[in-house]
């Protein structure tokens, strides 16, 4: 049995032949179902992508304005309250958020579905309704992270000489804040959005288990229990590749924002 699966070969050799396969877009087969790993990943892709896309979009939409406003009114009531909320929500583990949210909004209040996933093909509204709770729990820490960086980056930018110049010109607050400051502050913000995707990937594994979403995260957890190495390897490789790709794209975005950066 072990021989047939190649498990008795030295680890380096196993890894080498797996890597060889990867270079030919062959991730191997599952030890459990004998299905090609690539096919399994393809089947489980939609829920994970949906969850992460919704989380990412809404997190950025919430976090950036909050961070900008907190920096503009530094030391004010809004700033102090959001700073406390940010450190708290950054500290709550994803599963704690997930279970608490599901218990309150699904079990007790019955406003939202408890668990499961509705494919996008069955309509945007049911798809979205089902994603609200998972995305909210996945996004809690991510929003806090982006808001904190946005605030810090804005504070630093608002301290720059060219902001003083803009004020000396007599420009209005809105123009100073959103054109002069936010654009200059955006490189660290964009960077953290990209780096934070790692957090989303790790969080997705947990969130999908909490909400029983049949995505890649749940497949990871299932495969660990079955000790299905080729699948785990394949998922780790797939996620890492996606993560690197996202951050490469972000590097290209820099050049649009900052004329001093050239590739």
């Amino acid at each position: 049995m072990r021989h047939a699966l190649g498990l008795d070969r030295p680890f380096a050799l196993q890894f080498g032949s797996w890597l060889w396969g990867v270079l030919h877009f062959d991730l191997g087969n599952s030890l459990f179902s004998n299905m090609p790993v690539a096919t399994m990943i393809g089947q489980r892709l939609e829920p994970t992508l949906s969850l992460m896309a919704v989380t990412l979009v809404f997190s950025v939409l919430i976090a950036v304005p909050v961070g900008v406003w907190a920096a503009w009114r530094k030391g004010g009531g809004f700033d102090r309250v959001t700073t406390v909320i940010a450190v708290v929500s950054f500290s709550i583990p994803v599963f704690a958020c997930g279970y608490a949210g599901a218990w309150l909004f699904a079990l007790k209040l019955g406003w939202l579905p408890v668990q499961g996933y509705t494919p996008l093909s069955e309509g945007i509204v049911p798809w979205f309704r089902q994603l609200i709770l998972p995305a909210a729990s996945l996004g809690t820490a991510y929003v806090a992270l982006i808001a904190r960086i946005t605030r810090a980056s804005m504070l630093e930018t608002l301290d720059q000489d060219y902001i003083r110049t803009a004020r000396a010109k007599g420009l209005g607050d809105g123009r100073i804040l959103f054109l002069h400051a936010l654009k200059n502050a955006s490189v660290p913000i964009i960077t953290i959005i990209g780096i934070g995707v790692a957090m989303l990937i790790g969080g997705a594994v947990v969130t999908e288990s909490v909400f029983v979403i049949p995505g890649l995260g749940r497949l990871t957890a299932e495969s660990i229990l079955r000790r299905d190495f080729p699948v785990i390897q394949g998922i780790v490789l797939f996620f890492s590749f996606s993560y690197v790709l996202v951050n490469l794209l972000i590097d290209l975005v820099y050049a649009f924002v900052d004329p001093r950066i050239r590739y």
Binding site: V197, A198, M199, I201, G202, G203, V205, T220, S223, I224, R227, F229, I232, Q233, I235, V236, F239, S240, Y243, V244
Partner: peptide, 15 residues
């Protein structure tokens, strides 16, 4: 760093 940290730990633990 290119491997998300939780996944890296998961992969190492699986091994």
């Amino acid at each position: 760093m290119s491997i998300p940290s939780v996944l890296l730990a998961v992969a190492l633990m699986a091994l």
